[in-house]
Every structure is written in structure tokens, then in C-alpha cells.
Nucleic acid binder design. Sequence first.
DNA 1: CAGTGAGCGAGCTTCCGCTTGACTT
Length: 770
Amino acid sequence: MHENLVIVESPAKAKTISDFLGKDFIVKSSFGHIRDLAKDDFGIDLKNNYTPKYIIPQDKKNIVNELKSVASDVKLIWLATDEDREGEAIAWHLAEVLSLSPEKTRRIVFHEITHDAIDHAIQNPRSIDQNLVNAQQARRILDRIVGFELSPVLWRKVKPALSAGRVQSVAVRLLVEREREINNFKATSSYRIIGHFNTAKEEKNHPLQAEYNGRPVSREEVLGLLEKCKNAEYVINELTTKPSKKSPAPPFTTSTLQQEASRKLGFSVSQTMSVAQRLYEAGKITYMRTDSVNLSNTALAAAKKVIETEFGNEYSKTRNFKTKTKGAQEAHEAIRPTFINNRSIAGNRQEQRLYELIWKRTVASQMSEAIIEKTTIDIGVSTLEESFLATGEVIKFEGFLKIYLESTDDEDEEQTRDLLPPLKKGDKLEMEKIIATQKYSQSPPRYTEASLVKKLEELGIGRPSTYAPTISTIQNRGYVIKEDRQGKTRNLTVFTLADNNIKETEKTEITGAEKTKLFPTDIGMLVTDFLVDNFANILDYNFTASVEKEFDKIAEGKLEWTGMIDRFYPSFHSQVVETTRSKSKPTGMRNLGNDPVSGKPVYVKLGPFGPMVQIGEASETEKPKFASLLKNQSMETITLEDALGLFSLPRPLGQFEGQEIIAGIGKFGPYIRHQNKFYSLRKGNDNPFTLGLDDAIALITEKRDQDKKKVIKEFPGDKELQILNGRWGPYIQYKKENFRIPKNVKPEDLTREQCIEIVEKAKEKKRKSG
DNA sequence: CAGTGAGCGAGCTTCCGCTTGACTT
């Protein structure tokens, strides 16, 4: 029999520490929270001092029963969950559910998984901190109240199955406000002027590029300026050299890992988390849901040793980073390799790349600063007041840059960072050419998943364990869509001065193109406006920060949790009641102008089936004309012209095989119809207004080919059984249900009997698990 | 499955934070 039971949150952690504890200890995991508020009703007794009604969710019943039975067999139970608010609550729920008596129960915490740390924890047990538990209960109950009272308002006023909450609604608001900033942004242009100079006198010529220290706006100004440059003299006014330093970024937290994996490896936020989870379970990295930048002493020592042997002593500099994030709870270390001396690992490509990124970031954080010398050369022009500036950077000692440089979100302009030629004050330069290129100012950038996480973290909203799920939720609810958008081309004017001649040329550039960015949808914008209008306090960017302060007071024992909730709930609830009673459904209706044919007004609004435009008003005598918006159109930006275009469908394209092809838009998006068959338009060429006859015919023949390939095998005696080719390869369809084919089987060789056997086996398995 | 723009009124949807699998047509 075991003497002791230790309970932690995660099975991987359980496995690791059981190796340290020996045979007197059995270590089990709770798999996170084991109880939650009941879901079928509100889960809180509002009339009885907010008493929570906790239940054990179905998927936790097995583990709870197992823990109960083990707990009854041991002398002492050690609750070793995380030291933060949620961890304390898990410990308390365990004590409650397993009916643990205080005499039999010890609460312990440790911050790193080493023999010493665990020993020390065992020597210094405490009891459950009820204040911390109460802070968690307040947090949980506040979130339930906000979420379960706001969401139904949206069901009634906007659409069923929508949701709102302290975290997700603010995340959407950030996207909506940024989108409007971008829509309202008016680009201005000015000219960037680059001079190309030659330094040659005798032997070797070093070309030198320098930027004019001014940005003229009009073509007249540029031409005047270039005119003055024609016969000017160019002399070096000044040459300054300044030393500077660059320091490494701290080790990874969840949020910074998501950002860098997105920028450097192109991973989505959830992809990063699932790859990290696999690395964690394999014992390759420390825990991946953390807000701490702290490294354990063991890790610091290991990093120092690796750096000194691989790069030399001068590259090593031990640092302790401090967390700056609002509301950080720091129950874990930063994300780092478990064994820092392993520079790479076995695993699939994704695992290797993510591991390598973590390794580099961790090790770089313990390396010396880079020492850089920045040189600026100021080139005077005899006919102008402003001068040309050339900047150069020389790395004198690369330090941490040897392995890692943090990337940034701005796709900023290319900078000249070359080695500068050896020059001195008073040197004369020969002007070879001067190029003035029109440059447009940039709108603020759209958010990526990772940059939205960064922003949420800055605002202290959400936790490492919820960033990825939150990003998924707002997409699943239809508030946000992640996609690419094509840009538009625009013209640029370029003036080149060379050989005393000014030449004007036109260039084009693409602007506004986006790759996997987050865009708010019409519903997302409408819901955000509705919530901001009626629940400004909840949608406030500081709401979380201010309730967190109160949770902290509860945790310190200076505030009573039910009192805190009671100061919030009554007024919030009356806001909900009042909004439900008095506010009409928001439609986002906007007048776009008048229809030139009928003279009637044209509106865009959110209809019962999504965004739509209408011509005329509904009345007893007349029915307005309606049309749905296309997927890539938005209520906020659609023009009268585009709106009127929507009424030109369905549109005949021409004849094919003796019958007309018609283009239109249906329930499932844009389509063409031919011989009573429908074909959905394909991405990239999905505009039914401009689609040509040739494209339509190509689509029809392609689809016919594909349909031929779709059926791999049919069985003459059994019409309900087919082997088909699908998105994930071949599968069996039997009586409208789909079944996988085992990997080692060739689908085309299967007999009817074998198929039925596969079907039966799959059904049997389903019965057992369900 | 490929056009509807309303309101028969049953019963459903939803939050945040802690965890890990099962499984996709």
C-alpha cells in the first residue's frame, strides 16, 4: 500500500514528479478543474447570496471516482496544484469532492520540478488558502453572470446561438475598431528621395546611398528640388559614430511563443499550442501555458554551460527577467527546453522547428548584448538647406545575435544598413543619380491571430490557457473571419535625375493585400456596436483590469467576494432587463442613395438571412426588391453602384451544348446553372457579375471530370454501398453514413463483404465508446 | 440543397479557465 497520494493538474507533470518521489508516493492528475458551475440552469443561486451550484462534468466522473478510491487507501493526500488562483481552487474542489479531512490533507506548491524543490515543498506544507479560492469563485461567477445574461440578449435582438463575454466581446471590439480605422484611413503621399553617390577619386570607387532629409509632397516641389540638385556640389558635412547595444528578448511565455511561431514559422495560434503540447508530453519542453519569463536556477546554469562551451565565455551573461504583463500569475517557469544541452530533438518537422525556436530564444536570453556601431554621414548640398543622410551599422560584437533575433510585426521600409565606405569630413562626392519615388502613408495594420493575442495580453485580458480557444470562438460565432484579401494596384510617380536630365516614369504597386489576417464580419460589427451602446462598462478595455484589482483584494482577505458580486450584479441585471425591454433589433441600416431607374431609396441592412440590400420601402401597396450581399462585400463599405449591381442576377452567360448557362447567387454562394445542374464558383474566380462564358464552360467540364473520379468502386447488387474519394482520401459510404478505410487496405480491391465488415466494426466501436 | 426578406412560438443556443484526447467526409 502507498502511504501518500499527490495530486497535480497534468498527467505529464505527474509522471515527472513521481520519478523523484519514490515508491511511498503515488502521483495522480486531476486533468484540470474537476468541478464547474452547473450549465443547465444558471448555476448560481441569485436569491441566496450568489451561492454557486457546482457539478462534476460527465467527462470528469471517471477521474474523480478513481481519485476518491485511491484517496481512501492512503494516509496523506498532498494537493500539489499550481500556486495561482485557479490552482488553489482546483485544490479546494478536490478537498471538497474527495471529502478530505484537514488532518489528512497537505497543500504544497513548487515552482520547478527538481528533487530539491519537491523535497522543500514536502517539508513546508500549508493549508488551503480560502481567500485565494474565493477570488477564483468571484472570477468564475462574474464570468458566468456576464456571459449567460448578455448572450440571451443577443439571441433575442440579433440571432440565435450568438455569444458575448468579458474576454471575447472585447477581442472582437479591437478588431472592429481597427477595421474602421483602416476604412477611414486616407493615404497621403510624399516623395522619398535617394541619392546615389560615388566616392572615387583615385583607386577604388565605393558607391554610397543616402536619403534626403525631407519628404516633398507635390510634383512641383520635387521637380524644383531636383532642378537645384543638377549642378550642386556634394560635400560631407559631418560624420558621426555612436556605439549602441542590443539586448536579447526574455524567454518565451505562451503569448510571445505564439507571436514568434506565427511570424517565423507561419503557425496559427492553435497549431503552436498543439505542437507545444506534444513537446511537453514528450518531456522536451517545460509547461507551455505560462505568463512567466522566469528561468529556474537549474536552467540558468545549464544555459551558461552550453553557451560557454559552444560560443565561449564572453558570450555568456546570466539574466533574470521580470514579468511586466498585467495580471500575470506566474505559476510556472517560462517555456524552455527541459534539457538545454539538446540543441535539436527527434520528432516531426513541426516539432523540430518549434523546439529549435524555443531553444534559441532561451539560450539567447542568457547571452551577452550585441555591440553595434552606428554611423551617420551628413552630405551637404550647395544649393539646398537640407542634406542627404546615409546610415550604416557595424556589428562589433554579435553576442546573442549569433543565434536569435526577435522579429517584428511592421513590414517596414528597407533600410540601408551596409558597411559605409571610409570617408572623412570635407570629402567631395560625385552625384551619380537621384531617384525620387512617390510613397503612400500606411494605414494601421490588420491583426493576425498572434498580434491580437499580444494586444489582449497587454490589456490583461484572457489567460495563457484561453488565448487560442478565444481566437477560435470569435471565428466560430461568425464575428470574425481569417482570410486572404487581394490588394489593389495603384500608380506611383518616379523622377530620376541623371546626367543633368530629369526623367518621369510611372510604376505600380499593390496595396491593401492581406495574408491570413482577421477581419470582423458584418455581424461582428453590428453586435459590437450594440454591446458598446448598451453595455459600455463591460466592453470597456479596462473592465478586466478593474475587476482583477478587486479579485486581488479578495485574495488578500481585504474584500468579501459575495459583496463584490453584489455591487456588480443588480445594476448590471437591470441594464440587461432595460435593454431587452426598450431596444429594438439593430439592423445596421444605411441609406446608400437613390436607384437611378426608379428613383427609390436604396438601403443596406442586416436581414433575417444575413446582410442584404433593398430598393424601396415595404408598404401595403408595394414590396421592395431584395438581394443578398456577396461574401467579400461588407455593409460598412458597400457603394450604391455595387448594391445596384447585385440586382443584375441571375445573369445569362451564353450557350453551351445547346443550353443557356445562368450565373447567380444562392444559399451556398455564387453558382452557375446549366441543364438544371448547379456548379459552385471556385475561390479566386467567384464573381458571378464578371464571370465569362469560357470560365463557366471550364468549370462545368472540370466538375464532370471530378465526379467521374469521385466513385472508386460500386457494387452491382448493393446500391447503398459505395467506395468514394473524399477530402481526406478514400472512404466507404453505406446507407448515407461514412466510414474510414484501414490504412493497409487498397480501396479498389475491397469486396462487398469486406466493406460490410469494416462498417460493422466501426459501428461496434462507436457503441462501446458512446 | 440553389431565393427567402415573416414572427405559428416548441426548444435550443451562451461564459472563462484548468486540462487532454477522439476524430473529422
